[in-house]
């Protein structure tokens, strides 16, 4: 009568109790597939919450290894994991929280040649990349494949996030046409970041994924949410899809993916 065992009913009881999630919402979560781009500051809390929520398949892409400087904010990695591939370190913690989910590890650097093939297997993507070329690549690929995703970025005390449902809401490129010049934004490792804001932002992204899957509430679409943790001021800036957007507009000029040259920052 129910697809859940007694143990699963107890594990997911706090979701099932929610009117907007309920039994059906939890069934959807258990059948859903979410890809996390980057097992760093944003990906770490997102991965933990998606695993805990019972998202059936969680994919994680990252080509990096755990460094001691990651541990101040990338809470899925422990001191014992220094030197371990981030996808393996993350997968271990996710399976420890919830052995009932499937974790797919993609130890690769996302690029124009592989991204569409990887994201195609997923219902939703969480962008926790640490560099602008990858963020634009994720946007363009998700728009082309019609896959909803959550954009997120953090630096110093600041965070920003928006949810994109291709064909229905403003995309990242509607809002930010091209990556900033290489020198315009300081590299993350020079600027620093307050550890806990990675959790603040990555957790918002995880909540958006859970909302999308269950259909609960309203997504953070056509809006950019920003915060400054120094004052804890949050701002919600309304956005609109742009008719002249180069990727999702009426006459797109970007119809194929290309890798952009820019050094990746090492912090997020």
């Amino acid at each position: 009568m129910t697809p859940f065992s007694q143990q699963q009913l107890e594990r997911y009881s706090r979701h099932i109790l929610l009117q907007d999630v309920g039994v059906e919402g939890q069934i959807r979560l258990c059948g859903a597939r979410v890809l996390i781009v980057g097992a760093g500051g944003l990906g770490a809390p997102a991965a933990l919450y998606l695993a805990a929520a019972g998202v059936g398949t969680v994919g994680i892409v990252d080509n990096d290894h755990v460094d001691i400087s990651n541990l101040q904010r990338q809470i899925i990695h422990f001191t014992k994991d220094i030197g371990v591939a981030k996808v393996e370190s993350a997968a271990e913690k996710m399976q420890a929280i919830n052995p009932g989910i499937r974790v797919r590890t993609h130890p690769a650097f996302l690029c124009a040649d592989n991204i569409r093939e990887i994201i195609r297997d997923y219902d939703f993507v969480i962008d926790g990349a640490d560099n602008f070329p990858t963020k634009f690549l994720v946007n363009d690929a998700c728009v082309m494949e019609g896959i909803p995703f959550s954009h997120g970025g953090i630096l110093r005390f600041d965070g920003q996030t928006m949810t994109i449902v291709p064909g229905k809401s403003a995309c990242y490129r509607c809002t930010f046409r091209t990556p900033p010049p290489a020198d315009a934004v300081p590299t993350c490792s020079q600027a620093g970041v307050l550890g806990a804001i990675a959790g603040m932002l990555g957790t918002i992204q995880a909540a958006e994924a859970l909302k999308f899957i269950t259909g609960a509430g309203e997504l953070l679409t056509n809006a950019l949410l920003t915060f400054d943790a120094r004052t804890m001021h949050f701002r919600r800036i309304p956005l609109r899809p742009q008719d002249d957007c180069p990727v999702c507009g009426a006459a797109p000029t970007i119809t194929a993916l290309e890798d952009m040259e820019q050094s990746a920052c090492s912090l997020t």
């Binding site: 009568m1 129910t2 859940f4 009913l9 107890e10 009881s13 099932i16 109790l17 039994v23 059906e24």
Partner: peptide, 14 residues
């Protein structure tokens, strides 16, 4: 409580 409500919701969902 609250597992009795969880079971009630499972019953109603079916």
């Amino acid at each position: 409580c609250p597992m009795n409500l969880v079971h009630a919701k499972v019953g109603l969902a079916a």
